[in-house]
């Protein structure tokens, strides 16, 4: 531990901490974007027309199986050059779009698993009671489909929180970016990067425990033996 300096630690701490607001803000923004955009995928996949269904499935597969970092670069560097629709976006907006779209494909799957998880008899019951389409969704299906997905959605919030530092590569001044620029300036990466790691741990570990508890509670309430599926580790 010869090169560890508490002095540097103390000096770097407030500087790194300055980025925390941006990191958290970006997390929330990306998350909200993904939550809303996820509905869009779920809706598209429900269109009962085979070719569209097929295309949507593969577009989602494409977005899910290619690196979010490259998608981020595409939106930040390449989008402005695209003819006609291209516009220049600031780093923060690019990050919301890039990470938001990437994770919306996962969120869409969560919604879908929630809807598929509603017992078939419920649809038939709704039909037999002569509900309208809107009533069927708002009164019967969604109230049952959404609660079981809450722990999974919570999980994705934590996962996205851990992906947000990718945005430092296009210059969003979150905690990782602050630590890196401090490191580059004084040529000491050890302490600032350790601070970043500690900050992540402090925030994600208790939330993970919270989600875990929530999940157990939900499973009891809905009498499920296990969660719909374990969140399929969506990290970059």
């Amino acid at each position: 531990m010869s090169n560890w300096s508490w002095e540097v630690f103390a000096e770097a701490f407030p500087i790194v901490l300055e980025g925390l607001g941006i990191t958290l803000g970006l997390t929330i923004a990306c998350y909200l974007f993904a939550l809303i955009f996820g509905f869009f995928w779920t809706f598209l996949r429900r269109i009962p027309f085979k070719p569209i269904n097929w295309i949507v499935t593969w577009v989602m597969e494409f977005i899910r199986s290619t690196p979010p970092l490259v998608q981020l670069f595409f939106i930040y560097y390449a989008w402005p050059m695209v003819p006609v629709v291209g516009v220049t976006l600031d780093p923060f907006t690019s990050a919301i779009l890039g990470l938001g779209i990437h994770f919306s494909t996962y969120i869409g799957e969560v919604y879908r698993s929630g809807i598929d998880g509603v017992d078939k008899g419920q649809w038939e019951a709704a039909k037999s009671l002569n509900f309208s389409t809107k009533q069927k969704w708002t009164k019967i299906i969604l109230p049952q489909a959404i609660p079981p997905t809450i722990p999974m959605l919570g999980n994705y919030l934590i996962i996205m929180f851990k992906e947000v530092p990718l945005a430092s590569t296009i210059g969003v001044a979150g905690i990782l970016h602050m630590a890196n620029s401090y490191g580059a300036q004084y040529w000491t990466y050890l302490e600032p990067l350790t601070i970043v790691a500690i900050l992540f741990l402090i925030m994600s570990y208790p939330s993970a425990i919270l989600i875990n508890k929530l999940e157990k509670k939900m499973n009891r309430r809905f009498d499920k033996k296990e969660a719909l599926n374990s969140s399929k580790g969506a990290t970059a």
Binding site: K162, L176, L193, T194, A197, F200
Partner: peptide, 19 residues
């Protein structure tokens, strides 16, 4: 699991040699 991969990568690459 609690910290992000990119942080771990930088930490291993930049910080470990210093530490």
């Amino acid at each position: 699991r609690g910290t992000s991969l990119i942080v771990q990568l930088f930490w291993l690459y930049y910080a470990i040699p210093m530490l």
